[in-house]
Design a protein around this nucleic acid. Structure first.
Lengths: 307, 307
DNA sequence: CGTTCTTACGTGTGTCGTAACGATC
DNA sequence: GATCGTTACGACACACGTAAGAACG
């Protein structure tokens, strides 16, 4: 068994079962990739792909298993290469961060700035995605780690390190009647049209659960993937906004009034996750520590607490 | 990076840093292995071995890390090969079981017999070891899985499936005064010289703990690695024996009187463990199921219960 | 002086690329 | 008929083995 064969196998799967595209991606010619697959199938004595004539259309059951193990084998070779790189050049390379809009827009910038100053030779990549996509990205080694609140800690193949906890706040126009009430309740919130995050995005899971647990049904008139859209429509007077508190920026959002709702909703924990057993280069570990230190400084974000 | 290089790396480590022995084990000549190491070190840009002149004497820090990942990479290729073998020949191959003396001698035989009848083409290997060794053997892929009571469930890199629980019994000569007491206590046991398992062997951990928890100190005059030695010296009148109940065979041990002690000691759980993510061939899974079914039949062993 | 690893060199396997052929949409 | 895959063949690379040389105990 040779690693090139496994590389071709994976490239073939990731190119949507196109031999030519896989070859291109690997800087090879088609016949080479075909041969790799042949060799693999010959050596194992099993068809790995289902074929429609000459075209490959999908994986057989055996193929799926082999792909799974091949992915892991290749990941280990990447770890080995990274060990080498870390000893040759401690502070140059690539840092690929997967994260949500909220993180990228509100939380990450200061950490990025500090990191970039400390490691100017490290190329930074930030890849945005939904929590589910972020999990996939971390597992498929498309990013080095994902920063995200949901779907991470549960995954058995990911190591998740908690970074901070946060909660939600209400944002409304300054003249809103809700502000006159002394104590806000979930029920009170239900009296107004709500603008908040779309299902599958920032903290949406616990949002709905919390209302449901009290037998309430919020009137969500607009759900958005990011906070800026929410703010925009709150300003338009379309409803009250419920956002992650840390996404409120006092300077730019002076026209909106913020009201902490952490007594109404459960705290969410944002974590950094990467595949179990993955080798993290020195500067990658550094970034994680730096990020944790950064978000632990009180006062920078409203309603953000260390875990 | 090539798999042969990794194979040579591992062989070199496992041969005690002898290039020639590693080469022999791999069916290669020394220069080939030397070249592999050179290639690896060149590609990674790090020394993997500490050298004393030309001799290799140990691993560098980087080397240890690389070895760790290389082991895993190779393990994945073995998984891939096994997937293939399983599709070509479902019921022929090798089954390597790691286990303790007690299992091998008393529990395993019936399961082995049934399995061998069902899968006559599978070559059976039983490798004996202490619980600690068994953990290592499972991790290093020297066996397919280990059957063992201790040190397994705790290990984060092992999957442990529980098989049965057991407890201890007292064995004494038929005229022993302890037999006249209606209810045995830990304290009563302390009045006599005790013969039981050596530390690190069958259930020894909880044995000592239990006495210690009651502020008692048993007088262990002889500790043995296996039950047969214990029985022998009990017969000699050297002391009272405390053994795993399932190691009492009514036919051969008619001269010894057994007394259940499960009210005095905690139950122990025997498990089968293999590396997380390891591919188990069909017949290997079959064996596990068969073993579980086998030990679930009541009456065959004294004091053995399904989990 | 034997053991052990390195260096040097030749041979053969095998991988990749080019080119022609076949099949499928 | 254009695209995509397989088959056939040749060239180059490289991994392995042999043989000789260097360092260590």
């Amino acid at each position: 068994m040779e690693l090139r064969n496994l590389r071709s196998l994976i490239a073939l799967v990731e190119s949507g079962f196109s031999v030519s595209r896989a070859a291109e991606q690997l800087n090879l010619v088609q016949p080479a990739v075909s041969q790799h697959i042949r060799h693999l199938e010959d050596e194992l004595g099993v068809q790995l792909f289902v074929r429609k004539g000459k075209r490959l259309t999908g994986l057989t059951k055996a193929g799926e298993q082999v792909v799974q193990y091949a992915r892991r084998a290749l990941a280990e070779t990447h770890n080995i290469l990274d060990v080498g790189r870390d000893h040759v050049e401690q502070s140059s390379g690539v840092l690929r961060i997967g994260t949500t809009h909220t993180q990228a827009r509100y939380v990450l910038p200061p950490a990025i700035k500090i990191f970039n100053k400390a490691y100017p030779e490290v190329e930074l990549q930030i890849h945005q995605g939904t929590p589910q996509q972020l999990v996939e990205m971390a597992l498929d080694d498309l990013v080095d780690f994902s920063i995200c609140t949901e779907n991470l800690a549960e995954h058995p193949q990911l190591t998740a390190v908690p970074c901070y906890k946060w909660n939600r706040s209400l944002i409304v126009q300054s003249n809103h009647p809700l502000l006159e009430r002394r104590r806000l309740t979930l029920k009170a919130l239900c009296n107004y049209p709500i603008i908040t995050y779309t299902f599958g995005f920032t903290g949406s899971g616990h949002f709905n659960d919390t209302f449901a647990k009290h037998g309430l049904k919020p009137r969500v008139v607009l759900s958005a993937a990011d906070t800026d859209v929410i703010k925009t429509y709150v300003r338009e007077g379309m409803g009250i906004g419920i956002i992650a508190s840390l996404a409120y920026t006092p300077k730019q959002d002076r026209d909106l009034v913020i009201h902490d709702l952490s007594n109404l909703f459960p705290w969410e924990v944002t974590k950094i996750a990467y595949p179990k057993g993955k080798y993290l280069r020195r500067y990658q570990q550094q970034f994680i520590e730096l990020f944790q230190a950064c978000v632990s400084k009180p006062g920078r974000w409203p309603g953000l607490l260390p875990v």
